[in-house]
């Protein structure tokens, strides 16, 4: 099992990925400017010294598939998921599985995470230690003390900073689609391949709603889920939730992005494999 790349590899040394180059090497040494996310060891130091700005060898930088996790680590992720677990636990597990697959395939993993207080990036590396570091970073960042969640900020950061083609894995909760997200997703989808992993939020009304006292991590105010025992209100809620899900699905489908929904850790492996399968079959 590996993460399938639809676009043909344009370098010669890209392993199992299908290449657009056939025959022998042309010893092609194309250079481009360094952008964050590129590996330091790909930098052509001689050319950099001549020009004065960092330059990387394009064929080396694009040789390997890079997996970029874009993770919301606002305090939404410290809230509970549909299954009652903390959402970031599910996110970390999903990241670990996808990251391990990528590492086993010889790919590299990178991370962009954050909240409105700041978005942070960790560069791509292909070691397990690095992956472990990424997981710990996400676990440590997504606390109730973090800022509010604004996934659009991390998406815009990734769109602005990562010029090279990557495999993007977005780990988010049930985000509400707005104009900002639509715009940045359109841009990202044109540039990268994207997998979308949604961690389902706790139900607030209806039969599956947790009957425990709860509070909203956005405003830190109480949420009276007992009021949702009202059938009319539960119906309104269900209609509204369906509309939100529909908006996100519509956006992703229109961009050819496969999505997985995970409610608790027991579903992670199954959902991710189904996601990879869908992604592989998609055109």
């Amino acid at each position: 099992m590996y993460i399938f790349a639809h676009r043909k590899a344009r370098g010669l040394l890209e392993g199992e990925y299908a290449s657009i180059f056939h025959g022998r090497s042309l010893d092609f040494e194309d250079l481009r400017t360094y952008v964050p996310g590129d590996e330091v060891r790909d930098i052509d130091w001689k050319a950099t010294a001549r020009v004065g700005t960092p330059l990387v060898k394009r064929h080396k930088a694009t040789r390997r598939q890079q997996l970029l996790f874009v993770v919301d680590t606002g305090r939404n992720m410290a809230a509970i998921a549909r299954g009652g677990e903390t959402k970031k636990d599910i996110a970390v597990m999903a990241m670990g599985i996808l990251g391990s697959l990528a590492l086993n395939h010889g790919d590299q993993v990178a991370l962009v995470h954050g909240d409105p207080r700041g978005t942070h990036a960790l560069p791509a590396q292909g070691t397990e230690r690095h992956l472990e570091g990424l997981l710990q970073r996400v676990d440590a960042a997504a606390t109730l003390g973090a800022g509010e969640s604004r996934l659009a900020g991390q998406l815009e950061y990734a769109a602005a900073r990562f010029k090279r083609r990557m495999l993007l894995v977005v780990l988010a909760d049930e985000v509400a689609v707005d104009a900002r997200i639509t715009k940045v997703m359109r841009r990202l989808a044109a540039q990268h391949e994207i997998l979308w992993v949604q961690i389902d939020d706790a139900e607030l009304a209806g039969a599956e709603a947790a009957a425990r006292a709860s509070y909203d991590v956005a405003g830190m105010g109480p949420v009276l889920t007992v009021l949702a025992a009202d059938l009319e209100l539960a119906r309104d809620y269900a209609r509204d939730a369906a509309a939100r899900a529909e908006a996100l699905t519509g956006l992703l489908v229109s961009r050819g992005i496969a999505m997985a929904r995970i409610g608790h850790t027991g579903q992670v492996v199954q959902s991710l494999f189904a996601l990879l399968e869908r992604h592989r079959r998609a055109q």
Partner: peptide, 10 residues
């Protein structure tokens, strides 16, 4: 009480 996200759904 447990924290929940996107409470504006409700």
């Amino acid at each position: 009480p447990v924290p929940v996200a996107h409470a504006d759904r409700l």
